[in-house]
């Protein structure tokens, strides 16, 4: 009996170890979650009943790349929220490792920038780990199919972090325009350039 349960727990441990490495891919169902927004409310993907999808972005206060994309995220939200594809921002960093990304600091930043979209804290980092996000900002474009959200695109927002107007590819925009127009999303995966996510020990 003892050995059986030992084997079973070892199996669980192994399963845990492998699932950590597993990341969601384009075409997979996006897992839902419940995380605390800067306004104190718990939010999930299902909270917004009108959403046909999301621009789900793992981003933070402190990464210079995240900062360079803040205004672009606001612009994307303003352009696509009414069309059913709002921005949903998740802060993935451990505040222990990155004090500038604590919940109070997130509230401050959201207020300063006037984020028109949710900015939730992934305190346990389980959501970030399950999605397989590695960098900030790291975007997952989600599209509602039936009751689920499917991942349509993973990667960068565009191809010029420094200068929005000099970007020649607007990956997120292209993906959503494709979804809205009923066409295939041509570029489904790029590399999300930015800062590494700061994992707790």
């Amino acid at each position: 009996m003892y050995i059986k349960s030992l084997i079973f727990s070892m199996f669980l441990l192994l399963a845990g170890a492998t699932s950590e490495k597993y990341a969601l891919e384009v075409g997979d169902t996006a897992m839902d979650f419940e995380l605390k927004n800067v306004d104190g409310k718990m939010l999930s993907l299902k909270s917004n009943k009108d959403a046909k999808g999301y621009i789900l972005v793992f981003t933070c206060n402190t990464c210079p790349y995240s900062q360079m994309y803040e205004d672009r995220l606001i612009a994307l939200h303003e352009k696509y929220a009414d069309k059913g594809y709002p921005v949903f921002a998740v802060q993935p960093n451990s505040p222990e490792k990155s004090p500038g990304d604590s919940y109070p600091k997130m509230q401050e930043r959201a207020k300063e920038k006037g984020f028109p979209f949710p900015y939730v804290m992934d305190e346990t980092q389980e959501v970030t780990s399950a999605y397989g996000a590695t960098n900030t900002p790291h975007v997952y474009v989600l599209n509602k199919e039936g009751n689920d959200f499917k991942i349509a695109y993973i990667g960068a927002i565009d191809n010029n972090s420094r200068n929005a107007s000099a970007a020649t590819r607007h990956y997120v925009q292209e993906a959503i325009d494709g979804l809205i127009g009923g066409a295939d999303v041509e570029t489904t995966k790029t590399k999300a350039i930015g800062c590494t996510i700061k994992w707790a020990n």
Binding site: N135, G155, N163, A166, R169, K191, A192, I193, G194, T196
Partner: peptide, 19 residues
Amino acid sequence: EIDYNSWIDTVDPSWSGAI
């Protein structure tokens, strides 16, 4: 080279883009 996706794989295909 600001368009990282144009060169990053030449360094290593496994590189996610973080430093």
